[in-house]
Design a binder for these strands. Structure first.
Lengths: 231, 231
DNA sequence: CATTGCATGTCGTCG
DNA sequence: CGACGACGTGCAATG
């Protein structure tokens, strides 16, 4: 990893064009040749960047650029697309190269897949008497999170989301419309299960004849592991 | 901006939990107190981070942590949510602080709004004889990019996207369904216009009775500015 | 302030 | 390798 603090100007061309006027910034070059241009603000997204796989070459400035004070040109090219980043460097204030070694990687907990796994073990939260047919039930238009058997003989398709929004209702609608055509499954009900569901999504779901279920992640986790129960 | 290369471990807690085992990484602290943890890989997204507004405080390591080799704790807290980042620092290899000054900002060109503006001037690309009624035609469920008058008396609703995907078809479907209820506009056709349209989106659009138009941004820009024409 | 729709989104997973 | 959905999505424009 190479960290350069420099006064620089940047031009990006690819899916769009973007330009940065000269200013003092951090130019971060990773071991794989990818580049990030960061300013002292914004959030974690750089002003400009190039994702790997890419190649960094140092070019000679054009005479007009030298005239304007450019001492170095870094050109970063994507190897798969024709995206290109051209960095004009006017002055280097710091230049630090260092080895980082292997990254053990990020360990996450609490995402949707966990929520889905918990609900698969606690399908009674969706409704009484339901039994799990399959998780990730495959269809032509994508997998349905949970497919349940209703005691009265019908089927329940469950879409699990951390947050229920309009997209989730659309997704569930497509699934239910498809399943309804299968006589071995009909009648089919659709249920949107989420930790929170936005009012618009609730209204749209109701309009489409879909049910909503609010999930309590902590309670579900507590049920899952009796050693963590408080009572 | 402060750049620290250190062997560190990180724990994030907020919407989810995430953990990084000890390894050598870049810890970037911006002037506003926001923090980015970068490894030598991935793309521009840090392994962990905290977005502003946030506050960084240095804590004393617990005795057990000191025992394990921790020399310093940085705790970064979000001021609005209860998100928290706890960085255990085992060894500092570099520590560089520098002033960057004001950022003139990124200038972009070529996004969807530009595509929409160009198409508004070249509605014949959607179909022969069409005339523009309005850009950003307001409806109760959101603005329609372009509303066109068909010479035969009907209306054409155009959804402009850089890339046409399933979401765009859903959006256009909602708009067309709504417009069809307006007797002054009926009959209504829907058109998805994009630089590229994914096969699934094409299929879904066809199934919904919507048309697709592929846009050539460079050609449209060329038409827009005669000085740039090659012939 | 909440909502909506875009993004050079990025990132995993699965066919 | 392409397609699809999730993301600590972030972010700006808008009502």
């Amino acid at each position: 990893m190479r960290l350069v603090i420099a006064r620089c100007a940047v031009d990006y061309s690819g899916r769009l064009g973007a330009h940065l006027d000269p200013a003092r910034r951090l130019v971060l070059v990773k071991a794989d040749g990818s580049v990030l241009i960061h300013a002292d603000g914004g959030s974690y997204k750089p002003l400009n960047w190039m994702t790997p796989p890419c190649e960094l070459v140092e070019l000679e400035p054009e005479p007009a650029e030298t005239e304007a004070g450019v001492v170095m040109i870094w050109q970063v090219s994507q190897l798969k697309t024709d995206d290109r980043l051209r960095i004009q460097i006017f002055e280097v204030f710091h230049d630090l190269e260092t080895e980082l070694g292997t990254e053990p990687g990020l360990v996450k907990d609490g995402v949707e897949s966990h929520l889905q796994a918990l609900l698969a073990e606690q399908v009674e939260l969706v409704g009484p008497g339901l039994r799990l047919i399959r998780r990730e039930y495959a269809t032509a238009i994508g997998p349905i999170d949970l497919l349940l058997r209703d005691p009265s003989g019908g089927t329940v398709a469950v879409e699990v989301k951390r947050r229920g929004e309009i997209d989730g209702v659309e997704q569930l609608t497509r699934y239910v419309d498809l399943l309804k055509r299968d006589p071995t499954l009909a009648p089919v009900r659709g249920v949107l299960a989420a930790q929170a569901i936005k009012p618009q999504a609730q209204v749209l779901a109701q309009d489409r004849g879909l049910d909503c279920v609010i999930l309590d992640y902590d309670a579900m986790r507590g049920m899952d592991d009796p050693s963590l129960r408080l009572f």
